[in-house]
């Protein structure tokens, strides 16, 4: 069998099934509009700054006050004084700036972030999401998620469609304590791109090798084909 060319990400459905972490980030990054200020959270969202955004002018904001950063740098090329929200050593793009935490969250609370991209444990049909506390834990990990969820103009979520036990993470209602309610408008998973619509989720796009039936079976809320690309 012929191997796909190096770097190729479009392969036939028999060879690939679903999106990997970088592909989920790449797909969501295609939704970023020219001129947007984009906050990227810990985990898969940080991979968005590795995506080729062409000639769009996108400014990436990290909660620790790093504004205008680019791809994660490989070992040996990194500057240990420079990290993104996930603690990864990143590069800076022309026009970058550094501010302290109060200014960084001033940018967030004053509504200057066009979209925040976050990981989550669960997303609901109503656009609620949960990403700071698991049911059994006494503590939680909020970080900047609540500030961002309450104040960014849009909230996009990237997460694996199912838990390791195979349980759905896209649900009618969140079972875990929520981070914010009614704010999520777009969700990228390993199975595709989905939009909460109140009753369930609309399929915007399915990843290679994923059928509507499979996505429906793995989702904990009604799935509709409306708006399917």
């Amino acid at each position: 069998m012929d191997r796909p060319p190096a770097g190729a990400r479009t392969m036939s459905s028999t060879e690939t099934k679903g999106w990997d972490r970088q592909q989920m980030a790449d797909r969501l990054a295609r939704e970023f509009q020219d001129g947007w200020i984009v906050n990227l959270g810990v985990g898969i969202p940080t991979l968005c700054s590795n995506t080729d955004i062409g000639d769009r002018d996108i400014l990436y904001h990290a909660e620790n006050g790093v504004i205008g950063y680019g791809p994660v740098l490989p070992a040996g090329q990194e500057d240990l004084h420079l990290v993104n929200a996930g603690g990864q050593n990143v590069s800076l793009n022309p026009g970058a700036a550094i501010v302290h935490h109060a200014d960084s969250f001033g940018i967030i609370r004053s509504g200057r972030i066009d979209v925040t991209v976050m990981g989550a444990y669960e997303v609901s049909a109503g656009g609620d999401f949960a990403n700071w506390k698991v049911g059994s834990a006494k503590g939680g990990g909020i970080g900047g998620a609540m500030d961002l969820a309450a104040c960014a103009r849009r909230v996009f979520i990237i997460l694996e469609h199912n838990t390791r036990k195979g349980e759905p993470r896209l649900l009618r209602h969140c079972t875990l304590p929520v981070t914010a309610r009614g704010v999520v408008t777009l969700v990228a998973t390993n199975l595709g791109l989905f939009a909460p619509n109140g009753d369930g989720f609309a399929v915007r796009e399915l990843a290679p090798g994923i059928s509507f039936e499979e996505a429906r079976a793995k989702t904990g809320a009604p799935l509709t084909e409306e708006g399917r690309a």
């Binding site: 302290h100 935490h101 969250f105 967030i108 609370r109 503590g139 909020i142 970080g143 900047g144 500030d147």
Partner: peptide, 8 residues
């Protein structure tokens, strides 16, 4: 437990 922006 305090949200990060509130802590700042």
């Amino acid at each position: 437990l305090v949200p990060q922006g509130t802590l700042a």
